[in-house]
């Protein structure tokens, strides 16, 4: 078998190496959708997944001269994609830090909760509870936890005393906690039970 036939896409890769834009389109048709859904699974965000695909393919285009049609193109794409996915994952983790924090402060993560509750739905619930807070509490929790302002800064900005700010934060967290009672959470547990044999 000719080395060139080893990978079905190698013909396109060779053409792309010479700057053929049609070959680029063809390679996108082979990998674009797959890469999009792969990234979406890890990033849970359509925008992020789309941007990963764009960045990967722009990199492929820019580095086309150094492509080697004899190597696995699949592995090459993965190498670029992995770094970009990890990068975006870290960014989104940082952006959602307040949700992780509020969740761990408000829920008693027993071993069971830690392993059997759907964490994604749990965070969504926390987010909904924040949105449902009374206007003033929501405003203050957003300033404090999402925008990261200090209690003193919030007090100055809203022209109220730091004590009042703290009071609103306590009340807000109390309200969130109330919405995370065992009954509401029960629905988020996976329906997989490890039943002990009697």
């Amino acid at each position: 078998m000719n080395l060139k036939d080893h990978y079905p896409e190698s013909r396109w890769v060779a053409a792309l190496k010479n700057g053929d834009t049609l070959a680029f389109d063809e390679i996108f048709r082979l990998y674009g959708k797959r890469l999009y859904h792969f990234s979406l699974g890890y990033l849970k965000s359509k925008t992020d997944a789309e941007e990963v695909v764009q960045e990967v393919f722009m990199k492929i285009w820019h580095n086309r001269a150094s492509l080697d049609p004899g190597l696995s193109f699949n592995a090459y794409i993965f190498k670029i994609a992995y770094r970009l996915i990890a990068e975006r994952f870290r960014k989104s983790d940082q952006e959602k830090k307040y949700l992780h924090e509020i969740a761990s402060e408000s829920i008693d993560f027993t071993a069971e909760m830690d392993e059997r509750a759907n964490y994604r739905s749990l965070l969504e619930l926390v987010e909904r509870l924040i949105q449902k807070l009374p206007e003033r509490q929501k405003e203050i929790i957003v300033l404090r936890r999402i925008q990261g302002l200090s209690v003193a800064d919030i007090a100055v900005r809203l022209d109220i005393s730091p004590k009042t700010v703290e009071h609103h934060i306590t009340e807000a967290l109390k309200n969130i906690k109330a919405g995370l009672d065992p009954e509401s959470i029960a629905g988020l547990l996976f329906f997989v039970f490890f039943v002990k044999k009697v």
Binding site: G41, Y42, K44, I85, A86, F89, R90, D93, A103, F109, M113, D114, E115, R116, A117, N118, Y119, R120, L122, F190
Partner: peptide, 20 residues
């Protein structure tokens, strides 16, 4: 599980540790 969206907090932390 993480990929399919049916993950626990423990799963998330394990994935995060690796991706970080």
């Amino acid at each position: 599980r993480f990929f399919e969206g049916n993950y626990s907090r423990k799963d998330y932390i394990a994935i995060r540790e690796k991706l970080f």
